[in-house]
Nucleic acid binder design. Structure first.
Lengths: 117, 117
DNA sequence: ACTTCATTCAACTTTTTGGTTGAATGAAAA
DNA sequence: TTTTCATTCAACCAAAAAGTTGAATGAAGT
């Protein structure tokens, strides 16, 4: 019957990240919230309409959101968006076993940095 | 010029995981190594040739490998394949800050389970 | 009111993806 | 050696993705 099964959050997140340009957008927004125009200066390879489509794909995956500010749309990352996908990947890798000592070190270090406000 | 930029490991991993059926293959192989035929019994929605293509895509991403055993190819997971992608995702999420207490708990528990050989 | 600026929408093209069927390969069983 | 079984290869098709250009929208500046 080929029932065009609903896309899950993980489908959307993984496919949004399956593109270098979109990952670069994430990296840039991690550094600072930006508008489409600001970003488009850094993506000379394609039109701003194409960039807009990439941004919409990230938005549909819940990875970023837009907030209206006058005539601008300011884009910012949603840092919770990766939770489930990260959980899935780490469960099916040997990430924990292989690196939990490193993790432990990292955590102890973070703890001694004090609470993150 | 539109130079068809090389695909990176992360491109391959994320796009391999951007499909429910391929993630299901990962879950099944996590439980136990299997052959194409064994898996195909669990995927009645499409042909074994289609399943074979999915498996090849996972293989190209380094997520599984095949080992010849007589007339069979036994598929097994490569549990290191997610390392870099996991690292990337966790860096750009607030994963650490948000869940490091949980992580800490998990690690302490794992430690008390004793060394993993 | 008119113009400009930032973004979106719409229509269209090309490439990639996910599926199909049928034939080929190659090891194992008869 | 002939047949069977597991997998792969090849050719094809439909749908989705990723890009283009040009027009539309809507707030801001003049």
């Amino acid at each position: 019957m080929k029932t065009k099964s609903e896309l899950t959050e993980e489908d959307l997140v993984f496919s949004a990240l399956a593109d270098k340009n979109r990952r670069k957008i994430v990296e840039l927004l991690h550094a600072k919230d930006s508008t489409l125009m600001e970003l488009s200066e850094l993506f000379s390879d394609f039109s701003f309409q194409a960039l807009s489509k990439h941004i919409n794909k990230l938005e549909r995956a819940g990875i970023l959101h837009k907030r209206k500010e006058g005539k601008y749309r300011v884009l910012s990352l949603n840092r919770h968006a990766f939770r489930e996908s990260l959980r899935w990947m780490s469960f099916y890798s040997n990430f924990w076993n292989e690196s939990f000592d490193q993790l432990d070190a990292l955590i102890q270090q973070k703890k001694s940095d004090g609470p993150a406000i």
